[in-house]
Design a protein around this nucleic acid. Sequence first.
DNA 1: ACCTGAACACCGTTCAAGT
DNA 2: ACCTGAACACCGTTCAAGT
Lengths: 185, 185
Amino acid sequence: MPRNRRPQDREEKREEILAVAQRLFIDDGYESTSMGRIAKHAGVTVNTIYWYFRDKDDLLIAVLDRLLTEALAQYATIADRPLNERLLWAVDQLERLHGLVNTVHTRAAASPAVHAWHTGFHELAETLIADDLRKAGAAEADLPAMIAIGTFVIEGLLTHRRDEAGKRAVIDLLVHRLTTTPTRT
Amino acid sequence: MPRNRRPQDREEKREEILAVAQRLFIDDGYESTSMGRIAKHAGVTVNTIYWYFRDKDDLLIAVLDRLLTEALAQYATIADRPLNERLLWAVDQLERLHGLVNTVHTRAAASPAVHAWHTGFHELAETLIADDLRKAGAAEADLPAMIAIGTFVIEGLLTHRRDEAGKRAVIDLLVHRLTTTPTRT
DNA sequence: ACCTGAACACCGTTCAAGT
DNA sequence: ACCTGAACACCGTTCAAGT
């Protein structure tokens, strides 16, 4: 059974470790997943992981990039739907990653690399939300605060789960209140 | 130098360990603070800590209760100020605890005791916010979604720091949009 | 270039023993 | 009741050595 030569092999093996790490990080959590268990599931020794990744945080970042790429590709599929539908869809998709959201926040305090990833992610998310709010006719002066509120509510929905009706109520109210002009009562 | 007898002593020592743990958890983070370092700073052996607290999560919960009690006492001081001022004040006060906010979310996944504390805390926070929104004349049907949005935005402000003007802009916009009736543009 | 066995320093927690 | 010294099982990471 002949195997491919070098550069091909390398990517394959890296991908295999990455796939194992992703599954364990999502299912069991980053903290509960030891390098030893990842190695065992991938059929290698711990040291081998360190040949492909600098450390456990580097492995985390690789997993996050993998998930982000996948999520963006799927997001392109529904880019034409109304804002609230898209937000609900995003929350539904990302909900299973709620453990990783916390992990990123926690590790960002200790790892500069994770911190940088977190910053980059927020910049990306804010760009996407800003586009939407502008199209909905939001006042330019209110944009930064609106973006923050939008981001925080989505993050909150990911980390504090509720049922489908609850999620929809929060998102619909949010979108309604942010995209209509208020009048004094 | 005669010391007090038993029950007094016990509380004192427990408090001392607690005070040390609180300072280290806040300054260096929960993960970076080992039981060994807490013991050293408190002038005892690690095992002694386990005489007063079940485990590290139990110590965390005791610290959280200590901080919550203190925060509620201070909050009573400004209970008559307008909603947005009170929210800004709360964020300013709790900002230094942003590491613990993440810690609670992370540990809640692994420790049922921390999970229970987190649930209780949210119930308390939601009660406070609900009172305010009712007084501001919010429609009863919108309350749950509004409470969620308010909670998530406060939590977001604690974990994603910005300058004083940024915080004020987010809170003012939030309060304005939640406490006025929207009309179609 | 790639992988391993064995070690290192550290972690939270426990136990048997002391007073 | 309170506290300790010593150990336990585990952790992320590294090193010297192999191919």
